Amino acid sequence: MVYLCPVPLDYLSFNADAPVSAPTSKGQTMELTQDWDKTFPKSYKVDHQKVTFTNRYGITLAGDLYTPKAEGPFAAIAVSGPFGAVKEQSSGLHAQTLAERGFVTLAFDASYTGESGGQPRDLASPEINTEDFSAAVDFLGMLAGVDRERIGILGICGFGGMGLNVAAADPRIKAVAATTMYDISRMMSQGYFDSTTKQQRIDGRKALNAQRWADAEAGTAAYGPTALQNLPEDAPQFAKEYAAYYTDENRGFHARSVNSNGSWTLTTPLSFMNMPLLTYIDEIAPRPVLLVHGSAAHSLYFSETAYSNAAEPKELFIVKDATHTDLSGVSAYGTSELISERRVSG
């Protein structure tokens, strides 16, 4: 079972109070929330601005741009994830922390989620979400003061896998880091811990395509329950840790987050099942790959496999006793320190 799941959320409904018009990469405007509605405190060591930009498929993405209070030129980093999260959660904390360390950073909502555009809501795609990272690189590279030869990306959880995929495809990305990485395509096709059999996969495709008929007949996408808010008692410990973070209003809850307040479209797994994300991970070289994972994380095997298949230069940094949620949802500081030490080089 996939525990990071949604209900449909109309992203415009969250923009009614105190809207602000943000500039886009094509001179358009998009109404975004004005208030600081992050799950972490605002840092006054850096400047913050809401922005929008458009990906290659014409979907307008919303982001938070964090800029050091210093003179450029700057290295820049695009940040997204975890899978089912929004920029007001972990990716924003990572971006703000990295900006305090001298990077221009952009935390963005993936297509179909958060404040970004795309219909239906709460849909994920290996192709489009990979493209979202390249679109973020487009945006950063057009900013005055950003050195195009020093643009990197940071993917968290499921967007770690997407980040490694785009780094292989987009040589403009000079370095890639992934923290507590999930290979969503592997998980969707093979299940947690590669436990899905071939017959189960075949049966799963039949069920998912039966759902396609139901969606076509209804004229709208169907969604599952808000899984993290209704976990069974026998749910895996890692799912309980997700719920403890994403559904607690004093920790990581955010109304626009799929993990906090929704579920994915029921047919979301279809595109991931037959499209492996990390096929060409070795072709990121000679650009550096940094993988950060917790020793107590259920997902550690994803980073171990990625590290094994990547070419030098590469590094797998294991944080002792850290769980998946310790790195994907709570702390940005360890990863930020590692990235700052390595820097983004040409």
Rank of each mutant, 00 (worst) to 15 (best):
I77R: 07
E217Y: 12
A243K: 01
I339K: 10
D132C: 09
D37R: 14
Y301H: 03
D203T: 10
N274P: 03
G160C: 03
Q49L: 08
R101D: 01
G152C: 11
M162F: 03
E315Q: 12
G334E: 06
V79N: 06
A135I: 04
A332C: 06
M142R: 15
T226M: 12
S260W: 07
L338M: 10
V7E: 15
F139N: 01
G114N: 11
L164I: 05
A311Q: 13
Y57S: 10
E149V: 00
L106Q: 04
K174N: 08
D170W: 01
A110C: 10
I184D: 05
T60K: 04
D47V: 08
D109T: 10
L65K: 06
P73I: 08
N309I: 09
Q49I: 05
C5H: 07
N261W: 14
T39D: 12
K206A: 09
T105C: 05
G224N: 14
T196Y: 09
N230G: 00
D47L: 13
D122S: 15
T226N: 09
T267E: 12
R56F: 06
R201F: 01
A95V: 14
S257R: 06
S331T: 09
T52V: 12
K87C: 13
S125V: 13
D234H: 05
T29K: 14
I128F: 11
S331N: 11
I202E: 02
L300P: 01
V46G: 04
A175P: 08
K69N: 01
P73F: 15
S340G: 11
L123W: 13
T267S: 09
G161P: 00
A285D: 05
G294N: 03
P171Y: 12
I202G: 03
F103I: 00
D170S: 14
P41K: 11
G114L: 11
T226F: 05
K206D: 06
D234S: 07
F108S: 12
W264Q: 15
E88L: 09
I318R: 07
S299V: 00
D248T: 06
L123G: 01
S336C: 09
L270V: 06
D203F: 06
Y246F: 12
M30L: 07
I156S: 09
Q28R: 14
L338S: 03
T60D: 01
S91I: 09
R172S: 01
E233P: 08
G117D: 07
D234I: 01
A136E: 07
F40Q: 03
M273V: 06
E304C: 02
N209L: 10
C157E: 07
D35C: 13
G92Q: 11
Q96D: 02
E341I: 15
D132F: 05
A218T: 10
S331E: 04
G329V: 08
G117K: 09
G63T: 13
E127A: 15
A210R: 12
N261Y: 12
E312C: 10
F108D: 09
V319P: 02
L32R: 11
A75L: 07
R251A: 05
A78H: 07
R212G: 00
L4P: 02
P68N: 04
Q211I: 14
P288D: 04
H298Q: 05
Y333N: 00
A99P: 06
M273K: 11
P68T: 04
V51Y: 03
N55W: 04
N165H: 12
G294D: 04
L93K: 14
S331A: 08
L123A: 01
R148G: 02
E149T: 00
E249F: 05
A62N: 06
P82A: 15
A243D: 11
V86I: 15
M181H: 08
D183W: 06
